[in-house]
Nucleic acid binder design. Structure first.
Lengths: 341, 341
DNA sequence: CTGAAAGCGCTAACAT
DNA sequence: ATGTTAGCGCTTTCAG
């Protein structure tokens, strides 16, 4: 008399199947194409039904079944740092083209945060994780991680044994120091990052090599550490100035720091570039907006992002991924370092 | 004689169950806590087994079963635009605290891209989608979308009938124009965005209201549209200057545009703020780095992001979400508008 | 050319 | 207090 089950309306592929009068298997086959042959008639019926029902496969179910998602995690120290914008954009653009999705994670370069994100991403079965911005000295929190099928790519130097996309960080700084020397600098204030950052390690090596090569004195008081912020650049420079440390050039390891340095120099009554020439690194967009406009080492961050995605696609298709993709860099000479401009 | 099945080693919860000598149900119960009572003994055994196997539940399976993920999609016009950094950071920080994950999508304000992302996110069963940066005039590509269980929040004005987090956009511009008038401006060049952007519509209303209120002439040649970029601000201002349109103040609807305007004004041989006072809106970090430092209307973008997450959490727990969360704004007066500074 | 059945890894009813 | 069963929505053998 009474229906044993109220028979809830079918959802998903099953609904399409009912409407087209076929099995879910057939629906799946038609919608994915590239399978065994299907008669034109049923194919059309399924397509029509799917369209009417606005059917779209549940990615979760597909991923669970297939064993892999089309999501990738992007770990950056801080998305508010301009260094990562073009990179994130490039990765995201390339990801979208390939039908992938990007999960954004800010780590503040804290191992604990990084670790917890990696776990979260692994739980979500992401297909790959991109570490951007360079790793840190002790990456023990990652080396013992059970990566299983997760592909890993680093943008910048990293302790992890994975393909990387990068620039010759020591080289960028050498190039910049060469330029400072050409401009007549003999005592170059070096505004570095944190000692534990690998990127800092490399850039510092570049500074040391160039300074030695030019036969300049390697005064330890000329090397200062900071957190790559405008404030850090400003206070480090101010400190050097207050301590009476002489310098006629500033080599900042990133642009924010360089901008802070220019502020401190100016505030101290000295002129850029007449009294002190300043060069930064990364060439973020702000650098051409401040005044004097900042000279900086430039390299294609947007392409870093795209390249990272390409590497992921290589790995996903089982190819042997290019272990290191190194990009070219050049100096964007602007007012802050050019006494003749 | 031969084993019927090679008996692949169990994975996931099943492996933990075997190791602890219990059923997967028990494993599930123990690991989630908050269920029926479990004897202390088995609980410890399960916990130990899970730990040894470094077991973590597969989020995909959990989501498929429970019918909802803990992911949210963030749609921004362009993550390279500083306006969205603090916002993205705020959302992401709050999301992480709540165990959620943020999928980043750049739309370039293109309906097609927006639509395709929304579909992709819906396929992935995200729990919510955040539209940031204000919608566009014809959001037909979204109004007919089958949202089903997906929560929607807008940061800024939007045509969609959803909770929103925002500032009084007309009010921000009115405040800024009031300030320009106080500084003695009587002919204020208005650098607007695209007519189809809702945020532009509102800001334009603010400009008109303030201009009328002060009894100033509403010269159509003083209103220019652009895409919110430095270049647009620069070329629009240059055009006005070249056409001989008189103005002694600039009201730019965003900071990039204002910076471009300052460049054009300076390049034309006129001084900021002596000859022309300039005010922007949004108060992005660069504004205090350019020179002259830019006066701008400030409001807490970081909090916008956090608030959006709060609204999502409200909706997810079935509460009635606050329909509109409006934040305060104030003018950050700097050199570009202060003839007395 | 098409369908039935098994199962991805998990949780929720329903037993016991 | 614990286990058995069913099923989330899909793809993939395996059979016709």
């Amino acid at each position: 008399m009474t229906d044993p089950a109220p028979e809830a309306p079918a959802r998903g592929a099953k609904a399409v199947a009912q409407r087209a009068g076929v099995s879910v298997t057939t629906v799946s086959r038609v919608l994915r194409g590239q399978d065994v042959a299907i008669s034109e008639a049923t194919k059309q019926r399924v397509l029509a039904a799917a369209k009417e029902l606005r059917y779209r496969p549940n990615s979760l179910a597909v991923a669970l079944r297939k064993g892999h998602t089309r999501a990738i995690g992007l770990l950056v120290p801080d998305i508010a740092d301009a260094y990562f914008h073009q990179l994130a954009r490039g990765l995201e653009d390339a990801a979208q083209e390939a039908g992938y999705t990007v999960v954004l994670c800010n780590t503040d370069r804290q191992p604990a945060k990084e670790r917890s994100y990696v776990e979260l991403l692994a739980d979500q079965q992401v297909e790959a994780i991109v570490f951007a911005g360079g790793g840190i000295d002790e990456d023990a929190h990652l080396t013992d991680f059970p990566w299983h099928g997760i592909h890993v790519v680093a943008i910048g130097p990293h302790r992890l044994d994975c393909p990387s996309v990068r620039v010759d960080d020591a080289g960028t700084i050498e190039l910049a120091v060469d330029h400072l020397v050409e401009q007549g600098s003999t005592r170059i204030l070096c505004l570095a990052g944190r000692p534990s950052w690998l990127i800092n390690e490399e850039r510092l090596r570049g500074y040391r090599q160039a300074v030695e090569r030019h036969g300049l004195e390697l005064d330890p008081r000329l090397v200062r550490t900071g957190d790559f912020s405008v404030e850090a650049g400003c206070s480090s420079t101010r400190a050097a100035l207050d301590e009476g440390v002489e310098f006629d050039g500033v080599m900042a390891f990133n642009d924010y720091t360089a901008i802070g340095a220019m502020q401190a120099v100016t505030e101290h009554g000295r002129r850029v570039p007449e009294d002190v020439v300043v060069v930064g690194c990364d060439d973020i967009p702000v650098s051409s907006l401040v005044s004097p406009r900042l000279t900086s080492v430039s390299f294609p961050q947007y392409e870093f992002g795209r390249a990272a995605m390409e590497v992921i696609l290589e790995m996903a298709t089982g190819k042997v991924a290019t272990p290191v993709r190194q990009f070219a860099y050049h100096l964007e000479v602007r007012e802050s370092s050019s006494r003749r401009l």
